[in-house]
């Protein structure tokens, strides 16, 4: 990896009561690349995302974004600094149109005051027009969702809702885009579309991508860098090829095949 890291996670531990969701997790996300976090269910991937975006506060460790520490920075400010994300179970503003949902992505960046907005003059009008142009031309055309821009998000198919969520994240002018299972539950064609969009976001927009994904085919195809999490710990990281050949990763996914290994592990953990 030649690029410098835009996100550095170092020694992050997170526990809910007695459950250790993350245990001394450290890794870096190189700028301008696609980094995938993989691991079995319950490995702590979503907890890691929620910690990075500021929804959870870790008990120890620190996270640096673009050279600055995120300690004590709350989720809305992290969003304003360029950390955008999507959710595993789609989180769109139901009852609003696709366009309104996407426009809300810009909320953190708008400076219009109440009075400006109330009378819709000056700055408010200018800002609104600029925003509309940018969203129409760049985001909506790019993601090929012109035909549904005025539809209510609740009426859309799952695949399209995921795409609208991505559009909203792009409207946030992200420096890093965090995608939590962007293709979960999609069919082959939808998965390929989404993979293409993710690659285009990286290449055309120059946005760094950090994603959690279970679709190994897609992860291995498009990622530059893979981090493997198991039981809240990083067990491997490297290029897709390196990770695929790693014994610990194979054991985490498939079991080691060695019956004695489980007995040894139980004994070791009891000690």
């Amino acid at each position: 990896m030649t690029a410098s890291p835009i996100l550095e996670v170092s020694g992050v531990s997170l526990a809910f009561g007695g459950v250790r969701a993350l245990n001394d997790v450290s890794f870096t996300v190189p700028e301008g690349a696609i980094t995938a976090v993989i691991g079995p269910n319950g490995a702590g991937k979503t907890s890691l995302f929620n910690t990075i975006s500021g929804f959870y506060r870790p008990q120890s460790g620190s996270i640096r974004f673009a050279g600055e520490s995120l300690d004590g920075v709350r989720a809305p400010q992290r969003a304003a600094r360029g950390l955008a994300r999507t959710f595993q179970n789609i989180a769109l503003f139901r009852g609003m149109t696709v366009l309104d949902n996407i426009k809300l992505g810009r909320h953190a960046h708008m400076r219009t005051g109440v009075l400006d907005a109330l009378f819709y003059w000056g700055r408010a009008q200018k800002e609104e027009l600029e925003l509309r142009a940018e969203i129409e031309e760049r985001i909506i055309d790019f993601l090929e969702i012109q035909h549904i821009r005025n539809a209510s998000v609740g009426t859309l198919s799952y695949g399209l809702q995921k795409r609208v969520e991505l559009a909203r994240a792009l409207a946030m002018r992200p420096r890093i885009l965090m995608l939590d299972e962007p293709v979960a539950g999609m069919n082959r064609e939808e998965t390929e579309d989404m993979a293409r969009f993710i690659l285009d976001v990286k290449e055309e927009w120059g946005v760094t991508i950090l994603m959690v994904e279970h679709d190994m085919g897609m992860v291995m195809d498009i990622s530059d860098h893979v981090v493997v999490l198991n039981f809240g710990q990083v067990i491997a990281s490297g290029t897709p090829r390196e990770v695929q050949g790693n014994d610990a990763v194979v054991a985490a996914y498939l079991g080691s095949g060695d019956v004695g290994a489980i007995a040894r592990r139980i004994k070791a953990e009891a000690a």
């Binding site: 989720a75 959710f87 503003f93 219009t112 907005a117 819709y120 909203r168």
Partner: peptide
């Protein structure tokens, strides 16, 4: 017409999503 109103609407629709797009 105000951003506060938009923030309220967004919060009412989905708190997690609102938080993630920078609404306090």
């Amino acid at each position: 017409f105000s951003r506060g109103g938009v923030a309220l609407k967004a919060t009412a629709a989905d708190q997690g999503a609102a938080y993630s797009v920078g609404i306090d």
